[in-house]
């Protein structure tokens, strides 16, 4: 089962070897440096991976992860525990990334969605005919590279839905688009990824034959 957005923490250590998250939060509210670091260690991979997937840039992802944690720590005194801490942090991280993308004037949702679709996006009749098949499993690194190659709008929807587990209604709220738009973008993102992965496999097959 894939983890949803309510389960965002790093794999847990055996009980008794480290303080609970609630304890870390209370200590962080008092300015305890170790508690801040403990919370960071628990969530850093998830937050950084999210930033990296959405920006496809290591330096930007590090800056954004840093900004997300700083915003979190500045507000931690107001955390009352009504919602899961990880959900709070995750939503905050998404907002930090979206603000960054907007500042860079990158479309959070592709503008082409406002039209009826372009020729490129129209369904193709010949799909799967002479293509390389994506049989078996998909290599994680290849998929990662393909996700990085997606246009920013497609990439954001794909990351939020298929990687991070957000629902379309949540994405629509976050990105400020319609639910239908989110669904349509996701489908196009997956189709684009399929093309990219196939091209990659075809290139590799060509190299093997040449070698």
């Amino acid at each position: 089962m894939r983890p949803g957005i309510g389960d965002l923490t790093e794999p847990r250590q055996p009980k008794g070897t480290e303080p609970s998250e609630a304890e870390l939060i209370e200590r962080a509210k008092l300015g305890d440096a170790e508690a801040f670091q403990g919370l960071y260690d628990k969530h850093k991979r998830r937050v950084y991976s999210l930033c990296l997937r959405m920006t496809a840039n290591t330096a930007e992802a590090e800056d954004l992860a840093q900004e997300a944690f700083l915003q979190l720590y500045r507000k931690i005194a107001t955390f009352r525990g009504e919602s899961a801490f990880s959900t709070w942090l995750h939503r905050l991280s998404v907002n930090v990334v979206l603000m960054h993308l907007r500042k860079k004037s990158l479309p959070v949702v592709s503008l082409e969605e406002t039209t009826q679709g372009t020729e490129e996006d129209s369904p193709k009749r010949d799909f799967g005919a002479d293509d390389v098949a994506l049989a078996g499993s998909i290599d994680r690194m290849q998929l990662q590279r393909a996700v990085e190659s997606l246009p920013p709008g497609y990439r954001m929807i794909f990351v939020l839905h298929d990687i991070e587990g957000y629902e379309h209604n949540e994405i629509a709220k976050i990105a400020g688009c319609s639910i239908g738009n989110s669904k349509s973008q996701l489908h196009k993102a997956r189709m684009k990824l399929r093309d990219l992965l196939k091209m990659n496999r075809a290139e590799e097959a060509g190299k093997t034959r040449a070698g």
């Binding site: 894939r2 983890p3 965002l8 790093e10 801040f36 670091q37 960071y40 850093k44 991979r45 998830r46 950084y48 991976s49 990296l52 997937r53 992802a61 590090e62 992860a65 840093q66 944690f69 700083l70 720590y73 098949a133 994506l134 499993s137 998909i138 994680r140 998929l143 990662q144 996700v147 794909f158 298929d162 990687i163 991070e164 587990g165 997956r190 189709m191 990824l193 399929r194 992965l197």
Partner: peptide, 26 residues
């Protein structure tokens, strides 16, 4: 193939480790 992509996408979650620079700056 689309289902394969969706299944593989879950493995990308929390896969990357930030450099020590990030915590130091924080």
């Amino acid at each position: 193939e689309l289902n394969l992509i969706v299944a593989a996408a879950g493995e990308l979650q929390a896969a990357e480790e930030p450099s020590p620079r990030v915590w130091n700056s924080i």
